[in-house]
Write a protein that binds this DNA or RNA. Structure first.
Length: 560
RNA sequence: UGGGGUGUCGCCAAGCGGCAAGGCACUGGGUUUUGAUCUCAGCAUUCGUAGGUUCGAAUCCUACCACCCCAGCCA
């Protein structure tokens, strides 16, 4: 086993390995990723995707994509489309066609009839409220429904009438007859079919009764020959029911369910319900807003499939619930982009520098590496001119020795260019610094100054005459509370009001405007950015900040 | 005072009776035309607690404690 494998090792791999060794797998490993199309996929789903597809990849098996579409009231075709795009973007390919639990509605209906004929299911006419009462509580057993002992014939007739649309929604349900006194509430005659006079995105108006999750999932797994059905911990209590159906129905295979702990990340929410609320209440611009922990949002923010997959690998798979520090996610994307993103320069809050000893009309095209330690990323040309922009934060009239940038009367190196000396500050009537006049040392291109005194600072810059205007959006965490979830409905109160900051007067090196949408860069000394996949164009460049560079100076209070 | 789970470093997480991996975070040193990267070093005498078995226990046994999930005709 390679080190890589050892890192990705987890209890599920052990289980599968043992199954293979014991010859319990007749064919190959088959897993599935079963999203309900009622929202966009989020980072937690990414973990499940990496797990299910990753397991199949690792053991040379297959992974199906199956939409768990048993509740037409909440589902939409648009979500189906988005989910497929997310999975593909992450770099996974499902085996065979896109599948739907609704593909099996006919079979599921037959299974229900089978249960009825066996005396193991009945039509119940208790209202929802009554059913709740009869169900008992966590500590008290339930009571049998008065409809529990109908004959198979009567149940068959009633169920068929349900299917024919003869009853109102909520008036009747089909229940499995198991045990109303079971300590596991899921076994207290669970509802397996309910009446929903709803148009279904896949089956249209063919059905007015829909099977529940419990009655659908395991049987769908069996029909598809899923060998290991992996879900999150909250379904653990459903496993006995999953097994009950498999045992009591003429299904073609015997899948097994295994559970793992879902992913939680601090300073964020991973609940489709809450994410939908953020969209519906327009706290964000949409499911793919760069601040959203959705896969589409993170993509737009500038995360890469590789970084997300690496993150999921780092996080691991286990059965203990915990909260992963966002710092780990941030590490994953920085790590990837540091290695792979070409470098560029962008000034976000410009201050004009006039290099007084540089000829007015002169333009030098300086060569700069695409990446400091990757020659394969080539070089780029930077126009050097008399007037350049630097960051306002990179100049001070006076400063202590810790400030390694431009100070009046001191020297600094312009990244990939010359060393210059700040000689004069020009201010407006209010005393604001308007521009700084400097002189440059023509012998310092790629060389240290002749006097041997090396400037301690290096700052980025963009030609004022040849640079291009750009809009840069900086994103911060959407919530300013470590666990916005806790305490129930109040997560909206923790929304960070400053999660988006737009810079409209940014200057980028000219070549950057030609970047295609969704290109990743490191703006040196600033952070990692991506050209927006929707709004960016050569005419109107728009970049999103994916993540800032680590900044030990700021951390130590340097920016004070 | 039901059932099902989980408890190993600030956060994830290996470990499966032989003497506590790794990653993130953090701290300190070095390199550096990015206060980035890289690099070196440090970071659990201890595994929820208390007993017990054993030459030996995070790993086995017992009891206790804490936290999570379950009473949708959601998934």
């Amino acid at each position: 086993m390679s080190e890589q494998d050892a890192a990705g090792n987890n209890f599920l791999r052990s289980i599968i390995r043992k199954d293979i060794e014991a010859g319990r797998l007749e064919g190959e490993l088959v897993t599935r990723f079963p999203p309900e199309p009622n929202g966009f996929l989020h980072i937690g789903h990414a973990k499940s995707i990496c797990l299910n597809f990753g397991l199949a990849e690792h053991f040379g098996g297959k992974c199906h994509l199956r939409f768990d579409d048993t509740n037409p009231a909440k589902e939409e075709q648009s979500y189906i489309d988005a989910i497929q795009e997310d999975i593909t973007w992450l770099g996974f390919n499902w085996s065979g066609p896109v599948r739907y639990a609704s593909d099996y509605f006919d079979t599921l209906y037959e299974y229900a009839l089978h249960l009825i004929r066996e005396g193991k299911a009945y039509v119940c006419e208790l209202s929802a409220d009554e059913a709740r009462e009869y169900r008992g509580t966590l500590t008290e057993p339930g009571r049998n429904s008065p409809y529990r002992d109908r004959s198979s014939e009567e149940n068959l007739a009633l169920f068929e009438a349900m299917r024919a649309g003869e009853f109102d929604e909520g008036s009747k349900v089909l229940r499995a007859k198991i045990d109303m006194s079971a300590p596991n509430i899921n076994l207290r005659d669970p509802i397996i079919y309910r009446i929903r006079k709803q148009h279904h995105h896949q089956t249209g108006d063919k059905w007015c009764i829909y099977p529940t999750y419990d009655f659908t999932h395991g049987q769908s797994d069996a029909i598809e020959g899923i060998t290991h059905s992996i879900c999150t911990l909250e379904f653990e209590d459903h496993r006995p029911l999953y097994e009950w159906f498999i045992e009591n129905l003429p299904v073609p295979a015997q899948p097994r369910q295994y559970e793992f702990a879902r992913l939680n990340v601090n300073y964020t929410v991973t609940s489709k319900r809450k994410l939908k609320a953020l969209v519906d209440e327009q706290v964000v611009a949409g499911w793919d807003d760069p601040r959203m922990p959705t896969i589409a949002g993170m993509r737009r923010r500038g995360f890469t499939p590789r970084s997300l997959r690496h993150f999921c690998e780092m996080v691991g798979v286990a059965r203990s619930e915990g909260v992963v520090d966002v710092a780990m996610l941030e590490h994953a994307i920085r790590d990837d982009l540091d290695k792979n993103a070409p470098r560029a320069m962008c000034v976000m809050a410009p201050l004009k520098l006039v290099i007084t000893n540089y000829p007015e009309d002169k333009v030098e095209w300086l060569s700069a590496p695409g990446h400091p330690n990757r020659d394969d990323l080539g070089t780029r040309s930077l126009p050097f001119t008399r007037e350049v922009f630097i960051e306002q934060d990179d100049f001070r009239e006076e400063a202590n020795k810790k400030f390694k940038r431009l100070v009046l009367g001191k020297k600094v190196r312009l990244r990939n260019a010359y060393v210059l000396l700040a000689e004069e500050v020009i201010k407006d009537a209010e005393g604001n610094i308007v521009e700084v006049h400097c002189s440059y040392d023509a012998d310092t291109l790629g060389e240290d100054p002749a006097d041997g005194v090396k400037p301690k600072g290096v700052i980025h810059w963009v030609s004022a005459s040849h640079g291009r205007r750009a809009v840069v959006r900086c994103y911060d965490r959407l919530f300013n509370h470590e666990s916005p979830d806790r305490g129930g409905e109040d997560f909206m109160q923790h929304v960070n009001p400053d999660s988006l900051q737009v810079f409209n007067d940014c200057w980028i090196e000219p070549g950057l405007a030609d970047a295609p949408a969704e290109s990743h860069f490191q703006f040196e000394r600033t952070g990692y950015f991506v050209s927006d996949r929707i709004d960016h164009s050569t005419e109107n460049p728009v970049f999103n900040r994916t993540i800032a560079l680590r900044d030990s100076w700021a951390k130590a209070g340097g920016a004070e």
